[in-house]
Simulated assay, not measured.
Amino acid sequence: MVKVALISPFTLPDYCGNSILTDRLKRNLTQYGYQVALFNTQKDLPEQAKEFSPDIVHSFNAERTGAWMEKFQHQFSAPWVITLTGTDYASWCGEKEPPSLVRQSLENAGALIVFHNQIATSLASCLPQLKSKIHIIPQGVAVFKEKTDRNTIRCQYGLDQKDIVFLMVGGIRPVKNIPFAINAFQEIEKAFPKVILLHVGPVIDQAEADRVFYWGKNTSCFHWLGGLPHQEVRKLMRATDIFLNTSFHEGMSGAILEAMAEGLPILASRVGGNLALVQEGKNGFTFSPTDLPTLIKRGIELAQNFTLRKQMGRISQMLARKNHSEKQELWLHEQIYLKLLGGVCLTKKGK
């Protein structure tokens, strides 16, 4: 049995891209016969991973896991895969040299995974010596089978059936650009008083949280629900109307993917990872993360147009099912693992 150690800076119950991705991979790899251990770099020690004695080590976010992995490598040697998730390359890729520890990690790894072609091209251009190690694996998204009634969920959260609810999901930190969204909704609320802006996610950066809550207390339509269990977030998505992402950059937002799977139209910042998911005018709209007038305009348009929301939501769901299956995601990961190890594939290629 192949033993895989997944190393992540965040794990459930904290809802963020890394935690959702690693939980999904652990579940699916285990289902197909792998022995998988998931380690949180903020809570677990490298010695614990050493005791697990993995055949493959797979870390997520080269920057946040770099120091932990450096300690681990001093104690244990195994083929290493890194998934670059967004914040670990956005500040330097295509513009300057990476931080020394990130560069060291990328050079030492046997394989590098990115979510879409744009970052693969940019990374290969920035660090051409790594080109042969770069693999593109679009994120998958789980099908959520629990079907709680939409009205019941709304009642649970104190939402009126006539409210038009925009949902944001993710930890509170500067890259998520949440005050920008709150400022926009001060204007959207004037044009459409029944609008609600919900945010779900834990505080990751306290200074940014202070900014968010300062602006939020002066915006009556803004409500912060804190961190919620993953399944509860998926239920809440089903009871809302539009999914909003205002990030300055994204690798590939797992929250957007889950919202698409739940049939929501997407209103998202025009950055690389979001553009890999949102087809302009088809399953949503995009805007520059500093363009307040466009966000306000598109927010009002979606709030007022039920038919457009439903049409875009259907396309979102179709795209999620067509392009982001869990089985395909798992099969592509397995090809990388087995290339580094040599072995027989346990799964069948999925669509």
Rank of each mutant, 00 (worst) to 15 (best):
327 K>H: 09
95 E>D: 09
322 K>Q: 07
347 T>H: 02
149 D>N: 10
1 M>E: 14
106 L>R: 13
294 T>I: 05
291 D>R: 11
135 H>R: 15
105 S>L: 14
279 Q>L: 09
291 D>E: 10
250 E>N: 06
28 N>D: 13
201 G>I: 03
109 A>I: 09
307 T>P: 10
70 E>P: 14
196 I>M: 02
291 D>G: 04
257 L>P: 03
31 Q>N: 03
14 D>H: 05
191 A>Y: 00
150 R>N: 06
330 L>P: 05
261 A>E: 08
93 C>Y: 14
92 W>K: 08
56 I>R: 07
39 F>N: 06
239 A>K: 10
73 Q>N: 15
153 I>T: 13
265 P>Q: 07
245 N>M: 12
284 G>R: 03
81 V>M: 07
62 A>K: 13
116 H>P: 00
197 L>E: 00
308 L>W: 06
229 P>G: 07
203 V>I: 12
162 K>D: 15
132 S>L: 05
73 Q>T: 15
310 K>N: 11
27 R>H: 12
336 I>M: 00
303 A>D: 02
92 W>M: 00
132 S>I: 11
160 D>K: 14
81 V>H: 00
141 V>D: 00
273 G>K: 12
128 P>M: 08
99 P>S: 04
27 R>G: 15
239 A>L: 08
157 Y>L: 15
143 V>D: 12
103 R>C: 00
141 V>G: 02
115 F>N: 05
132 S>T: 14
64 R>N: 13
130 L>T: 14
342 G>F: 14
76 F>S: 09
234 R>I: 15
68 W>N: 01
133 K>Y: 01
103 R>E: 04
315 I>W: 13
182 I>E: 12
198 L>A: 05
269 S>L: 08
262 E>Q: 12
113 I>R: 02
304 Q>C: 02
118 Q>K: 09
237 M>D: 11
218 N>F: 06
65 T>S: 11
147 K>I: 15
304 Q>T: 01
329 E>W: 01
245 N>S: 11
77 S>E: 14
4 V>W: 00
17 G>M: 06
253 S>K: 07
213 F>D: 01
313 G>P: 13
6 L>C: 05
194 K>S: 14
288 S>R: 04
18 N>R: 00
270 R>D: 12
104 Q>M: 10
302 L>E: 02
53 S>Y: 09
275 L>G: 00
337 Y>M: 03
281 G>I: 03
295 L>A: 05
205 D>T: 01
205 D>G: 08
332 L>E: 13
79 P>G: 04
234 R>N: 14
87 T>R: 11
120 A>N: 06
82 I>A: 11
33 G>R: 08
85 T>V: 14
126 C>N: 15
340 L>A: 04
319 L>K: 03
304 Q>D: 01
232 E>T: 13
275 L>I: 06
209 A>W: 15
111 A>T: 10
339 K>G: 00
316 S>C: 07
320 A>H: 03
101 L>E: 10
346 L>M: 12
325 S>W: 02
30 T>F: 08
253 S>C: 08
271 V>F: 13
97 E>S: 10
271 V>N: 10
155 C>F: 13
336 I>P: 00
113 I>L: 02
176 K>H: 01
93 C>V: 12
287 F>L: 05
189 E>C: 07
49 A>R: 15
50 K>W: 07
180 F>E: 08
79 P>I: 03
231 Q>R: 13
224 W>E: 01
172 I>D: 14
